[in-house]
Design a protein around this nucleic acid. Structure first.
Lengths: 354, 354
DNA sequence: TTGAAAGCGCTAACAA
DNA sequence: TTGTTAGCGCTTTCAA
């Protein structure tokens, strides 16, 4: 902000700019480069006075060591790559957030890449990350399907799949325990005394839909409840489908459900709306629970929607720690599923819990 | 510079692993390093046969140049930093996405950092980014308030604030034109023949609330419509507030509004719900428009909610291009606001537009 | 206690 | 047409 000379806008004209090097520090402090290095890194033995002088000069001229030069002869670049194979979405966000914290705490920088369903782009990103000599790689994505293993990668590069699966069974992957979460939801409804529990879910091709259905079934079985064949319905992940499903399940049926386990919160919310508009009381006549614990949805429902939280933040933290351990040489392999949590709200429990 | 460097990870045990260098390529191809370099970079003049031999060897041993070594004697690191001073949120996401595309297309890698309202963390991240010798910096954040200028930074480091403002008036900032968007919304309602237009907005301390109110007022004025003093109400950004505001505006009022301009889509959706439950027809009796064009909200409303799109994706693209130009030496300064767009749906227009 | 110098992987200027 | 070499900024022996 000192000089404001309007230069001609030729490319790269003004950005000529010398950042201080350790050589500058050394020269100004009147010592050798080696000495400066020792002082700056608190290494070796130096006279306190020399040390101080170097540090002062460094601070004064705003010296900041060049990490790239450092990494050049360290084995480690202190960077990791995060490759998102799905767009940056609602589910990947809490994971990023957690990863970021975990890595930042260790001074590890994150290269963020996105290659939504574009293998060419993915290769390109990967190539770039390898050029940056990342110490580890996180692959996130939609959990729906197993994805082809990312690669080829240099041997020994730690890779972890988060909220995504590789088709390589040895690959390290971290996923939420959908089945357990569904069991949790269903068991919650059962514990409330409900016996006619329907499951309104998303498209059947989703792995999560299959998992959750299994959890639903196993919870019913564990409670000795019969599974009604037409109490499982599948459709889009939308509020509209939640409303429509309620029509299907309640229109002219002698013994309609007394509880609904919905595949996500949007469906759950649609269901609640439809029930209310039919004059069915939630939770008195029908208890409703969703999945995802998407706050903005669940809390805006009337009544607020109980839900299952996948703890994606915890998942991300665990993934970060795991990758860091792998970078330090620890071995790991296979899929690990982390538990979901029940978040009761008034759509299942009359009194707001707290 | 306080020396509170994060502890490094314990030295890798088994991950001792030599990635091929250009020297390896040269040796295996039976040429000198310089020749290998020329071949790999398609520089200088070489016998085609030599060139091929080098390339073949490089491919075979999986050689990938070390970007850090390259950057060491280029002026450019081919990386930029994105510092999010708000969490990774709904608004910053489309911006990230756009930035990512813009940079990836140019082979620029992105360091992603998050420092939510924590100046210490911010400094730490910044220090790290400077260590990485980033070529440019994007600061994103909540647009609510002007934030203190990030710094201190080396002179000539291009910095751009996106969806965030610095208190330095010279700083380059890109923001959505909230006022224009509000004008668009209000004018749309006016064009439908509405004359009693209320504005249900968010908390007054938000800059966006002020801006949008101004747009609302100026559109009214431009149409020669009087502004009713109690037709502006302010509350939280929630559906519940939207519902409550409708009570306030319609309960026992002789001449209630015939249109609602809502400060965001959640408020808009709450308002629609409340109107429907009062038996007021939308859009026949009251037209409703929101702000943000948050698809999942707007489309799930009954009827679907017209809204104003801030075009955050376009904002991100523009920001990316702008930063790239700044990196190439172009000068820029000051705030620029990008236009919003009207997205009509059935809450204002009877026939679904298409 | 400090300095000199080799080398991390790469490019580019200069020699051969 | 190819090889040699001097750095880029830094750390780390090894000498002084």
């Amino acid at each position: 902000m000192t000089d404001d000379q309007p230069k001609s806008i030729t490319a790269a004209a003004g950005s000529e700019h010398h950042r201080p090097t350790i050589r500058d520090v050394a020269r100004l402090a009147g010592v050798s480069v080696g000495t400066a290095s020792k002082a700056l890194n608190a290494n070796g033995k130096l006279k306190q006075e020399t040390r101080d002088r170097v540090m002062t000069v460094a601070r004064d001229i705003g010296y900041r060591p060049n990490d790239m030069a450092q990494s050049l002869h360290r084995t480690r670049s202190m960077t990791v790559g995060i490759l998102s194979t799905d767009a940056f979405g609602r589910f990947t966000l809490p994971i990023f957030q957690a990863l970021e914290e975990e890595f930042a705490d260790r001074g590890i920088a994150i290269f963020m890449c996105n290659a939504t369903d574009d293998p060419a782009r993915e290769r390109q990103h990967l190539d770039q990350l390898l050029g940056k000599r990342i110490d580890g790689l996180v692959v996130t994505g939609r959990r729906a399907d197993k994805r082809p293993s990312v690669g080829p990668l240099p041997p020994n590069l730690p890779v972890i799949y988060v909220y995504a699966q590789s088709d390589d069974p040895e690959a390290v992957a971290l996923l939420p325990d959908d089945e357990g979460g569904a069991r949790l939801a269903t068991a919650h409804l059962i514990a409330l005394g409900r016996t006619r529990i329907a499951h309104i879910s998303g498209p059947e091709r989703f792995d999560a839909v299959q998992q959750r259905r299994r959890g639903y079934q196993s919870a019913l079985a564990a409670a000795g409840l019969a599974e009604m064949p037409d109490f499982f319905v599948s459709g889009p992940w939308s509020e509209a489908w939640g409303r429509e499903a309620v029509e299907q399940l309640y229109d002219g049926r002698a013994a309609p459900p007394d509880a609904l386990f919905c595949g996500n919160d949007q469906i759950g919310r649609g269901a609640i709306d439809a029930l209310r508009e039919r004059g069915v009381s939630v939770p008195d006549q029908v208890a409703v629970i969703g999945f995802d614990n998407w706050a903005v949805m669940a809390e805006a429902a009337r009544p607020p929607l109980s839900s299952i939280d996948m703890n994606l933040n915890a998942l991300g933290h665990e993934a970060g720690r795991l990758l860091i351990n792998m970078i330090s040489g620890e071995k790991a392999h296979g899929i690990r599923r982390l538990p979901c949590t029940l978040v009761p709200r008034r759509s299942t429990i009359k009194e707001s819990p707290r």
